[in-house]
């Protein structure tokens, strides 16, 4: 994102509208969770459109709960991940929206390849399928998830397609259909 160039008003003027709210929320979070907040990227100084902050895995649920219940960021807009390579390979990316001011905020959690992450279903039930998709596409496992199956790919699929080392060509052919596990209906 070209931060030197002012972003045109046709994209909504987020920086002008929300920068004071973003600053106060981040200040409060930094004071309350000094260990959990690892790094904060602001739109004024970094090429991001909304404040993006990295949170440690241990403090992330507390930070999310605080954001949801105190600061009003109660709408889980998006929950996804990305494969960044290196020691902390995966970034979990959570987009939240404040329903009264419509301000948005982005939170990231760095995970190494074998690490698991606690499920967000107690906070937002809609995180269920998003976590299944992250598991399907990246192979990140979620502790306490009730139904961590593949969601877009076949249940017999091998590999996790959105990892950067996944081959771009190749076949996995299944000649028989896979019935839904009857255990789900118990």
């Amino acid at each position: 994102m070209n931060i030197q160039k002012p972003v045109s008003s046709i994209y909504g003027n987020w920086k002008e509208k929300f920068s004071s709210q973003w600053a106060s929320v981040l200040e409060a979070l930094k004071n309350q969770f000094p260990e959990a907040i690892e790094e904060v990227l602001l739109p004024e100084s970094h090429p991001v459109d909304i404040p993006t902050f990295f949170v440690s895995k241990a403090g992330s649920l507390a930070v999310l709960r605080e954001l949801k219940e105190v600061h009003g960021f109660s709408f889980l807009t998006d929950y996804t991940a990305s494969d960044e390579g290196g020691q902390k390979r995966f970034h979990l990316i959570i987009h939240l929206m404040n329903l009264s001011s419509k301000a948005r905020i982005r939170m990231k959690i760095q995970l190494s390849e074998q690490e698991t992450f606690p499920t967000l279903i107690p906070l937002w039930e809609g995180a269920n399928w998003a976590e299944r998709e992250i598991f399907d596409m990246f192979g990140i496992r979620f502790d306490g998830h009730p139904d961590l199956r593949r969601i877009l790919m076949d249940v017999r699929w091998e590999g996790h397609p959105l990892r950067k080392d996944y081959p771009l060509r190749g076949y996995q052919v299944f000649l028989t259909p896979e019935p839904i596990d009857p255990e789900l209906f118990k």
Partner: peptide, 23 residues
């Protein structure tokens, strides 16, 4: 496209259609 990331929501017919691009 210069380095950066942006989430751009748009009110499509069904609801919020967002493209989150990390460049």
């Amino acid at each position: 496209v210069p380095t950066g990331e942006a989430y751009t929501p748009f009110e499509a017919a069904n609801g919020e259609l967002g493209f989150y691009i990390i460049s």
